[in-house]
Design a protein around this nucleic acid. Structure first.
Length: 253
DNA sequence: ATGGTGGTAAGACCA
C-alpha cells in the first residue's frame, strides 16, 4: 500500500501536475492540503475517472483538505470544528482498517500573534484527540508547518526566531510526536538538508533553502510495516509547481 | 538575500 501527501497550493492550479503524479507514482491513498476549493466545485468525477474515491472538505481561497483513495472509505470524519475553529484543515478517513488523519496545520504568521497562539492551540488539541487512537493503526500526515530539528531547516540559527521553527512550535509538535508516532521519512534517512517546502521567492529551490514541514507519521506497529519513505523532489522541479513536494511511503500491507 | 513569487480574486490577503 502506497500512501502519499502533498500540499498542492490550489487544486485547480495543480490538476495537471497531480494527474501526472497519480499516473506515474501510482499511490493508493493521497492526502492533499490547501485545495482552496469549496465542496460543490471539487472535481470528484475527474478523480473517479482515474480510479480514486474522494473525501474532501474545502473552502474558497484558503485551506481545504482532501483524500483520494483507490480503496473504499470505511469511514470519513470531518467534524473537527473544536480544533480548527471553522477553518477547513482536518479530515480523517479509514481505509483497510487504518485511520488516516490528513492535517493542514495553521501557518501562524508571526511569533506571538493571535494566529501563532491559534497554531499552538491547534497542535495541542489535535494531540489530545489523537491520543485516544495511538494504540491502533493510525497515520497522521500533511503539512504541519513546523520543522522538527535543526537539520530540517536551511539556517537554524536565524530561523529559531521565525515562524515554523520557534521553540514553542517545536515543543508542541514534539509533544504530539511523543504520544506514539514514528516519522517515516526519518526511519530511512537521517541526513539533513532534506526539505519538503521551498519558498517561491528568492530562488529558494535552486539554493535548496527549504524546510521540512510535511510528514507522514505512523503509530509504532504500523511503522514496522513501512518499507520506504521518500520526498518526491522531482515534482517541485517541474513547471508550475506547488511550493511543497509530495512525500511517498510504501507499506507491506 | 528583509526582497523577492504565486494563488485567489479583482484590491488585498495569505503563504
Amino acid at each position: 500500500m502506497r500512501v502519499a501527501t502533498w500540499n498542492v497550493n490550489s487544486l485547480n492550479a495543480r490538476l495537471e501536475p497531480l494527474k501526472e503524479f497519480l499516473e506515474t507514482r501510482h499511490p493508493d491513498v493521497v492526502a492533499l492540503q490547501e485545495t482552496k476549493i469549496e465542496d460543490e466545485n471539487f472535481p470528484e468525477k475527474f478523480f473517479k475517472g482515474m480510479g480514486y474515491n474522494c473525501a474532501f472538505k474545502g473552502e474558497k481561497g484558503y485551506n481545504g483538505v482532501a483524500v483520494l483513495s483507490r480503496f473504499e472509505f470505511d469511514a470519513v470524519e470531518k467534524n473537527f470544528d473544536w480544533i480548527e475553529n471553522g477553518q477547513k484543515r482536518l479530515i480523517m478517513v479509514v481505509v483497510k482498517g487504518i485511520k488516516i488523519m490528513n492535517a493542514y496545520f495553521p501557518h501562524g504568521k508571526m511569533i506571538g500573534s493571535s494566529y501563532y497562539k491559534f497554531k499552538l492551540d491547534f497542535i495541542k488539541k489535535l494531540g489530545e484527540y489523537l491520543k485516544n487512537y495511538v494504540s491502533n493503526a493510525l497515520i497522521i500526515t500533511g503539512d504541519f508547518n513546523v520543522a522538527m530539528e535543526r537539520k530540517d531547516v536551511y539556517a537554524p540559527d536565524i530561523m529559531q526566531y521565525s515562524i515554523g521553527f520557534s521553540d514553542a512550535e517545536r515543543k508542541a509538535l514534539k509533544e504530539l510526536y511523543n504520544t506514539g508516532f514514528v516519522d517515516l521519512f526519518r526511519m530511512f534517512n537521517e541526513e539533513g538538508k532534506q526539505y519538503t517546502w521551498w519558498d517561491y521567492r528568492a530562488n529558494s529551490f535552486k539554493r535548496n533553502a527549504g524546510m521540512r514541514l510535511d510528514y507522514i507519521w505512523a503509530t509504532k506497529k504500523l511503522a514496522e510495516k513501512c518499507r520506504s519513505c521518500h520526498i518526491d523532489k522531482e515534482m517541485r522541479s517541474k513547471p508550475k509547481p506547488s511550493d511543497h513536494a509530495p512525500i511517498i511511503a510504501d507499506f507491506e500491507i
